[in-house]
């Protein structure tokens, strides 16, 4: 019942706006992996390495990590969305970072073009 109403509303107000975009997004993601021709194992390893590097400084919410490659036109980028849960107060080496990151900073985004 509620579904039918939701469907109707969507249709009336130009709805399901994202569904086409979602396909496009999925496709860009798949193609990026196809194009760089990295094996899934290598991508997983790269993810692991990047996470490990960041984890030296901040605590990452591993559940919420988004990581992958994405393609637009003919260029491909690494997309990493690594939400920070908290800071590693116990590590004396990053005390400087504590200052800069103590502001509420929900997300760190890196975008590295691959030649």
């Amino acid at each position: 019942m509620t579904n039918a109403i939701a469907d109707l509303l969507e249709r009336l107000f130009g709805g399901k706006l994202e569904s086409r975009d979602r396909v496009k997004q999925r496709l860009k993601f798949i193609l990026a992996h196809d194009r760089v021709a990295l094996t899934p194992q290598l991508v997983a390893q790269m993810r692991q390495d990047i996470l490990a590097a960041i984890a030296k400084y901040v605590e990452i919410d591993e559940e919420a990590v988004e990581f992958g490659l994405e393609s637009d036109r003919r260029s491909t980028v690494v997309i990493a969305n690594l939400p920070i849960r908290g800071l590693r107060h116990f590590d004396p080496n990053v005390s400087q970072l504590e200052l800069t990151l103590s502001e509420p900073e929900p997300k760190a985004e890196t975008s590295e073009p691959i030649p």
């Binding site: 249709r11 709805g15 569904s19 086409r20 396909v23 193609l31 637009d72 036109r73 003919r74």
Partner: peptide, 18 residues
């Protein structure tokens, strides 16, 4: 189907394949 956003449009395909 393109109109109802259930199919990619020609522009979408071109954007991806260039």
């Amino acid at each position: 189907m393109v109109k109802s956003n259930d199919m990619m449009s020609v522009e979408d395909v071109l954007e991806i394949l260039s």
